[in-house]
Design a protein around this nucleic acid. Sequence first.
DNA 1: ATAAAATGAATGATCATTCATTCATTTTTC
DNA 2: GAAAAATGAATGAATGATCATTCATTTTAT
Lengths: 210, 210
Amino acid sequence: MALAVRTQPAKRTESRAKRRRQLINATIRCIARRGLSGTTMGEVARVAGLSQGIVNLHFQSKDNLLTETLRFLSDEYKALFERTLAQSGPGAAEKLLALMQLDLKPSVCDRQKLAVWFAFWGEAKSVPTYQKICDAHDREYDEVMLKLCESIINDGRYKGVNAQQVVDALSSMTDGLWLAALIRPKSWDRHEAFDAVYSYLGAVFPRHYS
Amino acid sequence: MALAVRTQPAKRTESRAKRRRQLINATIRCIARRGLSGTTMGEVARVAGLSQGIVNLHFQSKDNLLTETLRFLSDEYKALFERTLAQSGPGAAEKLLALMQLDLKPSVCDRQKLAVWFAFWGEAKSVPTYQKICDAHDREYDEVMLKLCESIINDGRYKGVNAQQVVDALSSMTDGLWLAALIRPKSWDRHEAFDAVYSYLGAVFPRHYS
DNA sequence: ATAAAATGAATGATCATTCATTCATTTTTC
DNA sequence: GAAAAATGAATGAATGATCATTCATTTTAT
């Protein structure tokens, strides 16, 4: 990932939306590289190839830039999530599996992207806005997962299987696998991670996953 | 959690070890409250009820203070882990369960403490020292878990159960449950978290957990 | 008296924000 | 169509606040 590589002179002015997007992308890159502590407005500007003033022009403050960056991440994920649901097979089991696969997909479970997620989670307790955005994000995700699990339980007549528990276990597992990918990149393996998730699905819903 | 409440005048001088410990505790409190970005040497000194200079005297630099703080957390957890192993029943299944319970125990799975763990994880990619400490920590934990799982698999003659997979699933699950406790404190429930873990154990090792 | 712990102000660096100025584009006037 | 005026994007230096580190001095323990 080369920072601030510019192969040709950029247009000096650009639409507001494009500029904001450019600055958010630069922010993501800076956070991924330097963490939240090391992310400065100066560095965001440098990575974006723009001036420091324009960051403030578009986002008013550093706090707002970071908040908007987190919102962007959340919205981006949401779009992927919805597309995954729309494009997967019609059954609840297929959709659930597709969502698990989404979380471990190279473009989502990418170490740069994970570093950014964890950077915001790391500040969630001290910055209530981040916590709210993350909470809302999780909640949406979980509701869909819950419906899918309930559907599978009904379909497969699984007794003693609690849908909420399965959702808690699955979503925790993927978050934890993300952490492992971040902390232990050398020993982490995408397929093994998927196998761990799949083996859970197989254990809980043997008639749907085996 | 009252910061810097002093009910009586502290001794002006104190042993080196006690001072360092005091400063590390103050650091943990600051990180829990303000995050890593908001943790300053000035605030650590204030919370410890000491001068700014003494923080540098004992730790040389902010970076070193934070690194030592992470090491302290890791060592503290390790001591608890070993004590839990020593005090649990003799069987692998009992020990594994005890370790799962340790992770969800109020004194360990405490939102202040979690905030600090996540703060360091959030900077793991940008601060290689943090990553190394966390990686080593995880590795030790996982080795013990692996042996316990292998033992249970042998004892219960579980076919098609892969010990490494179970370890990956369990440790990810607890990390993810920690994240949920941090992001969603209002809806998070310790017993439900444990139930999710226990149901996984029951699904994978039905002859040992039910 | 000496050595070590501890203080807290000074220091220089860094940072987020501001703002005077420049630049590019659009609109208006002729 | 061309030139001038208006508008808004963009620049980057200035500014004041904040911060980590340093160090001269004070305090404490032996």
